[in-house]
Design a protein around this nucleic acid. Structure first.
Lengths: 223, 223, 223, 223
DNA sequence: CATGAATGAGCATTCATTCAT
DNA sequence: AATGAATGAATGCTCATTCAT
C-alpha cells in the first residue's frame, strides 16, 4: 500500500490474525518516535539516531522500515493522514446538515490537535519545508483533506444553506488556514511552557461562529 | 537598531547624507539574493555560497554583513517586516471605518504576495522551521504584524461595528491564517509553473466577504 | 584440511561414504554464487546478501559455512585452485616432452578461462585487492600453481630442450602474467557485451609460439 | 584538460609563469599522498582522512580538488599515466631499431617500477577493482599505453625484423602482462619486507631475451 | 540447521565559517 | 572591505555480522 516505504520485516499490516509478530509494532514505534522528535527539534535538526534512541532501536533498524530520513517523514505523514481522514469521515457520516458537518470538522481538527500536539506540529509545519519532491508529495496527499473540507462547503451551497457567491476552492483554504494557524500558535505556546493562550474548544466555537456568519445566507442564524 | 547583524562596511542607514558608499547596497543585494535563494530552495537546502553567487559577492563577504546563516534569515525578516509594517500603516492611516481598514489589510497582504512572491514564501514558510531560537524570535517580531491586525478587529468592536462576542486574540490568527494559506497555495502553484489557480484580488474579496459576514453585527451588510 | 572455514553442517568432505546429507551442496552452491556475484560486482561491491540471494539461502546461512566475507573468498580460492591443480596435473601426466607439457599448460589455462570466465576473473583479479592478510594468503596458495609452471620450465632446461640461460623464477611469472592478461582482457570484453576480441585457442597458439621461440635452443623448432 | 576533476583553487597548471600560487602543489601533494596510502592500504581500505593526513591538509580540502574518492583515483591515474607516456615517448624517440625500442620499453617500465614502487602498485592493481565506470575508464586510458606497445611490435613486423605470423593485438597484452606480473611480484615482495627476489634489470633482460627469441625471425639474433 | 531482523561500527561527504592575503 | 581556499565538525546511510526463534 505504501509505495515508497518498506513495510518492514514483520509486515505487521499483512498478518490479519496477528499473534504479535516478532517485530510487531516496531514500525509503529519508530513513527511515534519520529513524531515526537521531529516536533521537538524540527525535521532538519532531528538526527536519525535520536529517533532511533527514542524508539528504543538501533540506528540501522530505521532503515529496515524506511528508505531514508525523508521517507520516514513521508510515511509518517501518509500513515497518520489516512487514519485521520478515516476518523473524520466516520464522525461526519452521522451528521445531516452541512452546517453541522462543517462545524464538526472544525471541532475534530482542534480535538486532534489537543490530543496529539506533536502530530499536529509535524503534519502541518515540517512538511512545508524539505525537498521539492516532498512539497509536491504533501500537496497531493494533503489535497484529500482539503477535498473533504471543500465538499462540506459545496454541500452547504447545494443545500441552499450557504450563500451561493462563495468560492469553495478559496474558502476551503481560508478555513483550513484559519484552523491551522490557531492550532499551531496554541501548540507552540504549550511547547514553550506557557499556559494555554486559549481553550481549543473556545477557539473552535469562535472560528465556527465566524465562518457560519460569513457563509450562511442572511436568514440563517448560527446553530 | 539591528542588534544581531553587522550593518556592514557601508553602514548605509547610518549615513543619511551619504552619496552612495562604494559598498552601498551590498547588504541589500545580499538580502535580495537570500530571499530569492531561500524561496527557491528552502532555508535548509540553500547554501550560503549560493546566496553569495546570486548576490555577486564572494562567500566570505556575507559574513561582513551578517553573523551567520541564521542571522541572515532573521535580518531579512526584520528588514522586510519593518518596511511592510510601515507601508501598511501608511496605507491604513487614510481610512476611517474599521471595516474598511480591515478590508484594506487583506488587500494589502495579497497585493504584497502578488508583487513579491518569493518574499511572501520566505516570510511565512521558512521561519516556521529553523532553530528554537528563531521560532521564538519570529514569534516576537511577527507579533507586531498580528498586533496591527488585532487592533483593527478591536477597533471594529469598540466602534460597535463588529459583534462583541468575537475574541480578537483568536480571530486575528484565524484571519491571518486564512490569508496566509490562500497566499501560499497561490505562490506554490506559480512556482510549480502552473497557471494561477485563482486571481488574488478575487481571493481578497472572498476572504473579506466571509470575514465581514462573520464579524459584523447582523444589521450590517457587506459593503 | 580447510583451517579457516567451517566445512558446514553436512561436512561432506569428511564423510567419505555419506549418502548426500540433506544440506549437501549448500556450501557448493554458496561458492558458485559467490563466484558469480564477485565476478559481476567485484569483491568490495558485492554484498553478502547478494551472494545469499544468488545461492537461494538466507543471509545468515552463509555464516554457517564461512567465517566471514573474506573467508568466503579465500575458501572459494582454495577450493577451486585445488580442483584446477588436480585437473592440470592429471592432464599433464600423460605428456612426455617438457615443451608439450608447457604448451598444454597454456592451453589448459585458457580452456579454463573459456569454460568459466567468472571463475577466472575472481581467481586472478579479486584476490589482488583485499586485506594484507589475504594478499599474503593468496601468494602462498597461488605459489603452487606457479610452482607447477616453474617445474615445467626447469624440466625443459634439464632435458636440454630449453636454453640454459633462462631464469625459471622470472619466466614462470612472465608466462603466467602473459596468459593472465590475455585472459582477463578477453573476459572483460565478453562481460561488456562485446564480441570476442580474439579466439582463445588462437591466443594460446600465439603465446605458446612466442614462448617456444624464446625458450627453446636455437636448433629446436616448435613441435 | 581533466574533465572530471576540479583543477582546484590554485589552478596550478594554468599559471605558466607561476610565482608559486598560494595553493601551489597542494593538488600534487594530495596525489602523492594518495599514491602512498592507496598502495599501502589498498583503495578500499584507505580512508580519505588518511590521505588528507598524509598530505598535511584537512579532510575537506581533498574535495576542493577532487569530486570524490573515486575521482581522486582516476585523476591520479590520468595524471601519472600522461607523464609516463610522455617520458616513454621521449626516451623511445631516439632509438632506431624496432627491437631496440621494444627492449627499451621493457627497461623503462621496470625502471619506473624500481623508482616508484607505490605508483606501480596503484596504477596496475587498484584500478582493476572499483566500479564498473572506473574499469571502463581505465580500459580507455590504459589503452594508450598498450597502443604504444602495439606500435612497437607492428613496426618490427613491418621492418621485417619480427616474424610476420605474430598477432600484435595479442602479443602486446602478453608482453604487458609479463612485465606487469614480474613487476608486481617484486613490488609486493619489497613491501612485505623481504629482500628483492631478483634484480629488476636482470628481469628486464630475461624478459627481453625471451620475447626477442620468440618474436624475431630465425636468422636474427638478440642484439 | 536455517532464518532474517536487528545491530552498530565505520566513513565519505557537505558546507557554514574562518582568516591570511 | 573583499576574497575564496582551507577547515573540520557533523551525520545519514551501508552492510557485515550476530543471535533469538
Amino acid at each position: 500500500m505504501t509505495v515508497h516505504s518498506d513495510p518492514g520485516p514483520g509486515h505487521p499490516r499483512e498478518s490479519p490474525i496477528s499473534q504479535p509478530a516478532p517485530t510487531a509494532g516496531k514500525r509503529e514505534r519508530i513513527i511515534e518516535a519520529a513524531i515526537k522528535v521531529f516536533a521537538e527539534r524540527g525535521f532538519y535538526h532531528a538526527r536519525v539516531s535520536e529517533v532511533a534512541a527514542e524508539a528504543g532501536v538501533a540506528g540501522g533498524t530505521i532503515y529496515n522500515y524506511f528508505r531514508n530520513k525523508d521517507d520516514l517523514l513521508i510515511s509518517l505523514f501518509e500513515d497518520r493522514m489516512e487514519a485521520i481522514l478515516a476518523d473524520f469521515r466516520a464522525e461526519l457520516a452521522g451528521i445531516d446538515s452541512a452546517a453541522g458537518r462543517l462545524r464538526r470538522f472544525v471541532e475534530l481538527h482542534l480535538r486532534m490537535v489537543a490530543q496529539n500536539p506533536p502530530l499536529a506540529e509535524v503534519l502541518t509545519v515540517e512538511l512545508r519545508q524539505s525537498s521539492k519532491f516532498m512539497r509536491e508529495y504533501k500537496a497531493r496527499k494533503f489535497g484529500e483533506y482539503l477535498a473533504l473540507l471543500e465538499s462540506l462547503i459545496s454541500e452547504g451551497i447545494e443545500q441552499g444553506l450557504f450563500r451561493s457567491d462563495v468560492d469553495p476552492k478559496i474558502l476551503k483554504r481560508a478555513l483550513f488556514g484559519a484552523i491551522d494557524e490557531v492550532s499551531l500558535f496554541w501548540v507552540g505556546h504549550q511547547r514553550a511552557g506557557n499556559p494555554q493562550p486559549y481553550a481549543l474548544d473556545h477557539a473552535a466555537e469562535q472560528i465556527w461562529r465566524l465562518y457560519a456568519g460569513g457563509l450562511m445566507r442572511p436568514q440563517e442564524s448560527t446553530p
